[in-house]
Design a binder for these strands. Structure first.
Lengths: 194, 194
DNA sequence: AACGGATGTTTGCGTTGTCATCATTGTTTC
DNA sequence: GAAACAATGATGACAACGCAAACATCCGTT
């Protein structure tokens, strides 16, 4: 009620930032639009201007999560090295992001988004999987990876990565990293005897 | 308010059943204790006798989910056949359960449960991974699977299975099943050239 | 038959999401 | 530059919700 200007300036971004913090601290159920509004110093209905309803805000948050995760994977894949080193680097990036943003990752893969947004999210998942296709195709060209549809291989690898983040959620970072190296080893060498 | 008896009979079970249906239809956020109470024909505070709060109900529901999923995996692993066939059967069981109970699976792996329950859930995940250890160890004894810690191998396989359910959520059942066979193939043959 | 625990009801409170309506600011158009 | 207009925020209201306290009813045990 002081000298605060009538318009916030960038309420949408402020809400998203607050929402991510609240999500990490109290989960999606404990996230209240009114609380976010209070934190931003606006009226309780102001968020409605930027997000039709609470779900729309969560949808947007999930999308930003994918953008950032894909960015991290891009960095990791640019680190160079052989196919195996590159896959391991991307695995570390994925798992690192997952451990820093547990609740956000839950949200990103939650089966409760609006239909229209679900398409965008599926798109994001596609792009995410595509990030692995190039290193694998390059590895095939270099003779480091066996033949086969690189998209299929990338799908399996990405599925494994995601599974590790979910199943390993209860163990320490060191254990996860060790398990990650093990998993990459299994992925490359296969279960069948050589 | 007619001839309904004062006591419900098995309100706890009725609530869990209703909750699972509501969860599938409207997600965890759209699940209301009062609505469940209405469906069961009891007062809106009656559920409080069986579940301390809403989260406690979701916790219990997640636990029942793991019990059922583990049961399905046990059936699948009992189907016999070689190690590869058994892993594929368990993969189908896992993915089948996941597709029948999308929202429930989200809940089972959600990072928002009470600390005490989280231990039980971590326990359930452990038991789930253990289901894969025996087929793999047997496969090693039979020379169908390469050496190495069977627990590590099982962890990687289960992670891949779970990842497939999450990443494949948007495609048709047939596609998922095909992708599943592909993934099992990759898991056994490995990415590296032979 | 009496008692006590388990189960269900009633009442009330504070919070929330959402909507309708009004106020203020920023932008475009003449 | 003024007027129209869109964008953004404020206010007020409402129903639904989670939760807790106090009360009622049933059931099994003694």
């Amino acid at each position: 009620m002081a000298d605060r200007p009538y318009h916030h300036g960038d309420l949408r971004a402020a809400l998203l930032a607050s929402a991510e913090r609240a999500l990490a601290e109290r989960g999606p159920a404990g996230l209240s639009l009114r609380e976010l509004a209070r934190e931003a110093g606006v009226s309780h209905a102001a968020p409605g201007r930027h997000f039709r309803d609470k779900q729309a805000l969560l949808d947007a948050l999930a999308l930003t999560g994918f953008e950032r995760l894909i960015g991290r994977l891009a960095e990791a894949s640019a680190s160079g090295g052989g196919a195996r080193a590159q896959v391991l680097a991307m695995a570390r990036a994925y798992v690192g992001f997952a451990m820093e943003h547990e609740a956000l990752l839950d949200l990103m893969y939650a089966h409760k988004h609006d239909p229209g947004v679900s398409e965008q999210l599926a798109d994001a998942v596609s792009r995410l999987k595509d990030m692995l296709v190039r290193p694998i195709a390059d590895g095939q060209a270099a003779g480091e990876i066996a033949g086969g549809d690189p998209v299929t291989l990338a799908s399996t690898v990405s599925a494994t990565l995601h599974g590790i983040t979910v199943f390993g959620a209860t163990v320490s970072p060191e254990e996860i990293d060790a398990g990650l190296a093990d998993a990459v080893h299994v992925l490359f060498e296969g279960l069948a005897p050589r």
